[in-house]
């Protein structure tokens, strides 16, 4: 047990306690949390900061508005409804097609307008938000995954999680939806995490439920062949999120849309630690490098992305 402990230390693995005490509470000001805990606020903020994100079609705030849902959805073939304060994929309804009054979910299952209405009213009632607080439903554009990922993700859009420390991207991982995860790219629901080389955007290793895995269980694709296109743009977008939020220890989730390129999906002020298992890399060495002031200060997002690519990736 003690040797396991010191091995983790040596590898520079960040544990939950240290993350909470040392990084989150020290570098993330409490008053900034609502900016990222509320996806609507994040989206509006991103709009102001010229950070690309999926288009907001509309919001639903009051129960009586759910009666109008039909109007709101008029002419929409594909869309996504999600709770503003949801987390870990809860309450996200992805509609990819529609025939009259029937809507097709990403899984292929069909839902009626009535069921969507009920879902929205559940969102407003706070079913998916923390402590059951009343919430707002966000209606936004469907993201079309980049063809590069077709064989890697099952029924869902993969996203790329960056840990951004004081504006420097330090670790990256792509999350692939599986049948197990119900088309959602959330690790603890069974999505696959593929650790990415910060220098190239190529796969390092992959995990499902914190265990190493080689092939996608649904598509059979060899996960180590994964390589992210437009890697530098992605790093830069991730780095920009720091300037936008001022959160020192940040998780930026970025998707690659087939048409619009990298888009900010959501931000997280308490990003998880499985990313270390996926990329076979402990966070601490890179974090300490920056914390000890070895990384230059006053860089732009672009310069920080560059620095991450060239220097941090080899730590």
């Amino acid at each position: 047990m003690f040797s396991a402990y010191s091995q983790l230390r040596e590898k520079g693995v960040l544990g939950l306690n240290q993350r909470n005490v040392h990084f989150i509470s020290r570098y993330n000001e409490r008053r900034l949390f609502p900016l990222v805990d509320d996806k609507l606020k994040t989206k509006l903020m991103a709009g102001e900061a010229h950070v690309n994100a999926p288009h907001l079609i509309g919001t639903i705030q009051y129960q009586h508005e759910t009666r109008d849902l039909e109007n709101l959805l008029k002419g929409l073939r594909e869309f996504v409804i999600k709770p503003a304060k949801g987390s870990s994929g809860k309450g996200i309804l992805v509609i990819v097609d529609r025939s009259e009054d029937e809507f097709v979910k990403s899984s292929g299952a069909k839902v009626s307008l009535q069921e969507i209405r009920r879902h929205v009213s559940n969102i407003l009632g706070g079913l998916f938000s923390l402590a059951g607080k009343p919430d707002i439903a966000i209606l936004e554009d469907l993201i079309h995954s980049d063809p590069a990922f077709f064989s890697f993700s099952y029924e869902g859009v993969p996203d790329i999680r960056f840990i951004v420390f004081q504006g420097f991207p330090v670790l990256a991982m792509m999350r692939l939806a599986t049948h197990r995860s119900d088309g959602k790219a959330n690790l603890h629901q069974g999505a696959i995490g593929v650790g990415l080389d910060l220098a190239t955007g190529a796969a390092i290793g992959a995990v499902q439920f914190d265990r190493p895995i080689e092939f996608h269980p649904d598509t059979g694709a060899s996960l180590k062949d994964l390589r992210i296109p437009a890697w530098k743009d992605m790093l830069e977008l991730a780095a920009k999120c720091y300037d936008m939020t001022k959160l020192g220890y940040l998780g930026s989730d970025i998707v690659l849309d087939a048409k619009r390129g990298p888009l900010l999906l959501e931000l997280n002020a308490r990003p998880g630690l499985a990313i270390q298992i996926a990329s076979q890399t402990g966070l601490l060495h890179r974090l300490t490098h920056i914390e000890e002031g070895k990384a230059p200060k006053g860089f732009t997002a672009q310069q920080r992305a560059e620095y991450a690519l060239k220097r941090l990736s080899s730590l």
Binding site: L8, V13, L16, N17, D210, I277
Partner: peptide, 17 residues
């Protein structure tokens, strides 16, 4: 103020070492 690993983390991160 304990910032060390949790017991369950020793197991969770075992594939890292």
């Amino acid at each position: 103020q304990y910032t060390g690993y949790r017991l369950t983390e020793l197991r969770r991160f075992r594939f890292l070492t």
